[in-house]
Each structure stands twice: as structure tokens, then as C-alpha cells.
Amino acid sequence: MINKIGSLDEALSKISDGCTLMFGGFGGVGNPPTIINGMIEKDIKNLTLIGNDAGFPHIGIGKIVSQGRVKKLIASHIGSNPVAGQLMVDGKLEVEFSPQGTLAERIRAGGVGLGGILTDIGIGSIIEDGKEKLLIGEKEYLIETALTADVAIVSAKKSDYYGNLVYETSARNTNPLVAMAGAFTIAEVDKIVPLGEIDPSEIVTPGIYVDMVIESKGVDWRWAWE
């Protein structure tokens, strides 16, 4: 029988210094806190991070960014984390900005095996700098490359032993897309249930995309907006 349940130590063994790490979450909500705290304790650094934003300085993925453990961040914005902004200004953090919808589509494209997407968002702005363009009919598009990662970390409400995931309301956000785009995907979940207990109609991320499941020890993203 397939059993994808693992320990935090096993999960952290898949995340190494210098790797490309994709994370789910929106402003900290939906970040996997146990994995993130474990990464800090293990002193993992020099990461290339891919995700919606830089979080908050002391919550979720924001802690990784604020502690200078990231060399490059690909995100839609960093405005909620002033430490990230200062690191960027000081030349200590390379930031590649991608409009939020474009970023989500680039991650989705990576997850389904596409090379990239076409979009007119960013035409005539700094977003188009250094990017190829394509003329279709009379309309010009930017070619935005797909995004994948060595490891993807996501947060979910519930999983079974196969790694089928159910998300908690708005904490679902970018997690289903991120789960698809990692060469190795780790899901941190609030509850692990036996096979057959999850109604198939509830499943958002099928277990085929998930390589390991660990049980969460905390959810510090719940206080992200306080």
C-alpha cells in the first residue's frame, strides 16, 4: 500500500542550501509553518524562492526572507515585508517581480509541463525588459517562461495516506498550483485521515502531485492579519 506519510526530518532532508523552493500561501496565510520553522532551525540558506509574496517579517515564509536566507525571490509583491524591501535596496536580495495573475499562470504552466505562457500584461512597462515578444495577428504578447522548483512546500487542512489534499477556505489560495510544480512536493497538513475518509468531491490536489505528507505542529499564519 502506498503511504506518503513522513517526518519533519525526512521532509527537511529534501530541502538543501541553494535549492529552488516554491511555496504556497498569500501574505502568510497558507504557508506551511512547521516546515518553515524547521528550515530555520536547520540553517538552510541561499535559496531561490518562488511564491506569491514575501509575507510578513515574523510570519511564515517572511521569516526565511527577513533572516537573509534567500538570494533570489520571484514574487508578485514584497510590500507587506519591509525587511525584504530593504534587502533588495541594499543589493542583498534579487527580486524578480511578476504580476500576480501572470505568476500564477507561470506556476500552473510549469505544473502541467508547458514551456511558458503568452500575455499582454506588462507590454510598454519595465515588466517587458529582457523578455521575448510574439506578434499574433495584430496583437503583441510577452513570452513568460514557466516556473518549476526543486521542492514545493504547501499547506493543507487534511490528507489521507495517498497525499490527496483538502484545503481550508482561503488558505487554499496558491497551494494547489504550487503542489503541481515541484519536482518533489511536500504537504504539511493539520490532519491525516485513513484512506476512504475523504469524499472524492472534496479533493482539490490529487495525491499524484504529492510526494510526502507531514503533520503540522502549528499554524502561525492564522495571525497574519492581526
Rank of each mutant, 00 (worst) to 15 (best):
C19F: 14
C19K: 10
C19H: 11
T20L: 06
T20I: 13
T20K: 10
T20S: 14
T20V: 14
T20N: 06
L21A: 04
L21V: 03
M22Y: 04
M22C: 02
M22Q: 08
F23M: 09
F23H: 11
F23W: 13
F23Y: 15
G24E: 03
G24S: 14
G24H: 09
G25T: 05
G25K: 00
G25N: 01
F26D: 09
F26R: 06
F26Q: 09
G27K: 02
G27V: 08
G27W: 05
G28P: 05
G28N: 09
G28H: 00
V29T: 01
G30C: 03
G30L: 12
G30S: 08
G30F: 12
N31A: 08
N31E: 07
P32H: 10
P32Y: 03
P33M: 03
P33S: 13
P33R: 00
P33V: 07
T34D: 10
T34W: 07
T34N: 03
T34V: 06
I35H: 00
I35W: 03
I36N: 03
I36L: 13
I36A: 07
I36Y: 01
I36T: 01
I36W: 00
N37L: 14
N37S: 15
N37C: 13
N37W: 14
N37H: 15
M39R: 00
M39F: 04
M39D: 01
M39C: 06
I40V: 12
I40P: 04
I40M: 09
I40W: 11
I40Q: 02
E41R: 12
K42H: 04
K42Y: 05
K42D: 13
I44L: 04
K45N: 07
N46C: 10
N46T: 10
L47C: 09
L47N: 05
L47K: 02
T48G: 08
T48Y: 02
T48I: 08
T48L: 01
T48R: 05
T48A: 05
L49T: 03
L49K: 10
L49W: 00
L49Y: 00
I50L: 02
I50D: 12
I50M: 11
G51N: 04
G51Q: 01
G51A: 13
G51I: 02
G51D: 00
N52E: 15
D53V: 00
D53K: 06
A54Y: 03
G55N: 06
G55T: 09
G55L: 07
F56M: 15
F56K: 14
F56R: 14
F56P: 04
P57V: 01
P57Y: 10
H58K: 15
